[in-house]
Design a protein around this nucleic acid. Structure first.
Length: 659
DNA sequence: TTAGGGTTAG
């Protein structure tokens, strides 16, 4: 529809050269009147015509045509360039962005700080941080907007250290003062660093600057601080900042609730949520708040509270928001109510890849591998493309169900049919799938042949399989690498000690335990939760301060005696402590999961399902004891361990003893 | 011109 002179009708060139190589063009620009426009936009000789045309084309989304007008006289105005840059961002076109930038430099607008800000934003959005930095470096008149733009760009790209270097330069030699935007970006940079150096100390310094400059009432900065401390695991610092905020809004409340969830403090998250709904009328929870709260319910199997929150979501009309509904599906499944999760999914008007992933992983953790594969297929036939997490979910489902052939086919299809390269997580799933199925040699071969350097997740999956199938040699090989990759992860040492213990290699058990002690590392204590009458009770292994401690202990001793009469032999081999046999039995009986089951039996009615969650993998002894109890007292017991669900009914577990 | 919290995973 546009009639251009032949030399100007070509597609815009793709500039890949560095911006420093740009040079003013000497070729004369054709006047705007040489352009034929038809039929709706009229041509006049007004010098504003070109700008109006470009602006109008940008607004219509016709970036290519707008770019074709660039070589014509007169030069575009600042506003025209701004619209062009925004249009390049919208079209996600770096080559068009470079073209606009080149014209802008040629026209002598390269030093305009407004346009420099826009260009930095553009390159940041288009993931070209080096170009963003070059714009900043070349801009001599750096307003606070220019500085803030480069801080934001670098923080988003994970270049935290560069932000601090520039922040110091701004403070010491630019004569420009930080504003409230500067602080939010610089605080973001603390947690978004590619460097392994902890930037927590830097973050605390910025916190001090913020207070010194009197920004303690700025909700944005304070909320960013809460989030920063949350990401560093400093829950106390986060809650201090939150408590002292003179003004809070829904975002601040949500940030604090999310802080508790991220740092495994679901009880505090729920407590704060109820406080927010009951006492704080100014900041009503929104969809973001609900997502965190549902995660908290899922973490501790707080089904009754989860149902209350579901009701709240419906009352507030938040049930059309996809992330909320996907998390709701997950919450029900993780609380053992897969069928309600499925119902929630069925009732959703719209579904995205996350909703499907939620359902796939829900079936996966309950051990329904084939159903998970079927949902994966349904998802594709519904026109939704799988993403990386879809494959992690479906491979995990295969692993739990022992579907080795199907899992391997899915792994291959990732690249072949869906054009995705397997990541570290996918390799870890494959290793887990093979290893759990006692195909350890094959799993080790996968690790050897990986196209990327195997990381701790992959070696960890191999070690986990060695634990299940008691393979000392391979476990030692995995640990050699794991101890280098994550020297402070106590779990790896404990697993190795467990494997040695199983193999009755007591000298080696002792050596690993000494290693743990020397490194001052501590085994994560076993912890289980149970919800009784809408209240969640937690139990720590071998802790005399647990709820109804005496009654619980008495019941367990009674059950243990009954079980022994029926052939139960306590698996004392898994107790790593150097104790007498009787004492080892006492340790086993004090495992948090057994305490929670006994508490459930005492405090719930006959026929009620006992639902428990545990922070670690269920141990062999707890597994066989729970099977026994389910038959002996005729109760359904549902246990979620760190990996999956176990439904105990009439002496049998849904995992088929494969976990 | 610029800003803060959340989806699915093993």
């Amino acid at each position: 529809m546009w009639g251009f002179p032949a030399s100007h009708t070509a597609q815009p060139p793709t500039f890949t050269a560095h911006l420093s190589n740009f040079s003013p063009r000497n070729s004369p620009k054709p006047p705007i009147s040489s352009i034929t426009i038809k039929p709706s936009i009229s041509t006049t000789k007004d010098t504003n015509d070109k700008n109006k045309l470009i602006q109008s084309l940008c607004k219509q989304g016709n970036l290519r045509q707008a770019l074709k007008l660039l070589p014509h006289e007169p030069n575009p105005t600042q506003h025209t360039y701004e619209l062009l840059i925004l249009s390049c961002i919208r079209h996600e076109s770096l080559s068009c962005g470079l073209q606009v930038h080149r014209h802008l430099v040629d026209d002598g607008s390269g030093q305009d700080p407004f346009l420099a800000t826009k260009l930095i934003n553009m390159y940041s959005e288009l993931d070209s941080i080096d170009d963003a930095r070059k714009v900043f470096d070349k801009t001599r008149n750096r307003t606070i907007y220019v500085w803030n733009a480069v801080f934001r760009a670098l923080a988003l790209a994970g270049h935290g250290m560069d932000v601090f270097e520039l922040y110091c330069r701004m403070n010491w030699s630019s004569g420009i003062e930080s504003d409230r935007f500067t602080y939010t970006y610089v605080l973001k940079a603390c947690v978004a660093s590619e460097s392994s150096i902890s930037l927590l100390r830097k973050g605390k310094e910025i916190h001090a600057h913020v207070l010194r400059r009197g920004f303690e009432a700025c909700v944005h900065i304070m909320t960013t601080l809460v989030d920063m401390y949350a990401r560093f695991g400093c829950v106390l610092n986060a809650s201090c900042v939150f408590d002292e905020m003179p003004m809070k809004n829904v975002v601040s409340w949500s940030a604090m609730i999310a802080c508790y969830v991220k740092n495994e403090r679901p009880f505090e998250a729920l407590e704060l949520f109820w406080e927010m709904t009951l006492e704080n009328r100014d900041s009503l929870p929104n969809s973001v708040t609900m997502v965190s709260v549902l995660q908290a319910c899922a973490a501790i199997v707080a089904l009754e509270q989860g149902k209350l929150i579901h009701g709240y979501i419906l009352r507030r009309g938040l049930d059309s928001i996809l992330p909320v509904m996907s998390t709701l599906v997950t919450m029900y499944a993780r609380c053992g109510k897969l069928e309600i999760g499925q119902r929630v999914f069925d009732q959703m008007d719209k579904r995205d890849v996350v909703s499907w992933n939620s359902l796939i992983s829900s079936y996966g953790i309950h051990g329904y591998g084939r159903k998970a594969i079927q949902i994966f297929k349904d998802m594709i036939s519904n026109g939704v493309s799988p993403n990386e997490i879809t494959f992690i979910s479906v491979l995990g489902a295969c692993s739990h169900a022992g579907l080795v052939v199907e899992g391997k086919m899915l792994f291959d299809s990732m690249c072949r049919e869906h054009g995705m390269y397997p990541s570290m997580e996918h390799y870890a799933c494959l290793v887990d799938l093979l290893g759990r199925a006692n195909r350890l040699d094959e799993a080790a071969k996968v690790v050897e042949d990986m196209r990327i350097e195997p990381g701790s997740k992959v070696w960890g999956a191999l070690l986990g399989s060695c634990k299940i199938h008691c393979n000392v040699g391979l476990a030692e090989r995995a640990c050699k690498r794991l101890f280098e990759l994550e020297p402070r992860n106590a779990g790896n040492y404990v697993l190795l000690a467990d494997i040695y213990s199983e193999a009755k290699m007591w000298g080696e058990v002792k050596r690993v335990k000494q290693l743990l002690e020397a490194k001052k590392l501590q085994k994560v204590p076993g912890c289980s939760w149970i919800e009784v009458r809408k209240k969640v009770y937690s139990f720590l292994s071998v802790d005399e301060f647990n709820h109804q401690s005496e009654q619980v202990h008495a019941l367990l001793v009674k059950l243990s005696t009954e079980m022994k009469d029926r052939g139960y032999v306590p698996q004392t081999g898994i107790v790593l402590y150097d104790l007498e046999e009787e004492e080892k039995e006492r340790v086993l009986l004090g495992h948090s999961e057994k305490l929670a089951v006994a508490f459930g039996l005492i405090n719930t009615n006959n026929g009620e399902v006992i639902r428990i969650s545990k922070n670690l993998r269920l141990c062999e002894d707890c597994h066989s004891v729970t099977k026994f109890i389910s038959k002996f007292v005729n109760r359904e017991i549902v246990v979620r361990d760190v990996n999956r669900f176990h439904h105990f009914r009439d002496g049998v577990c849904s995992c088929g003893d494969y976990w």
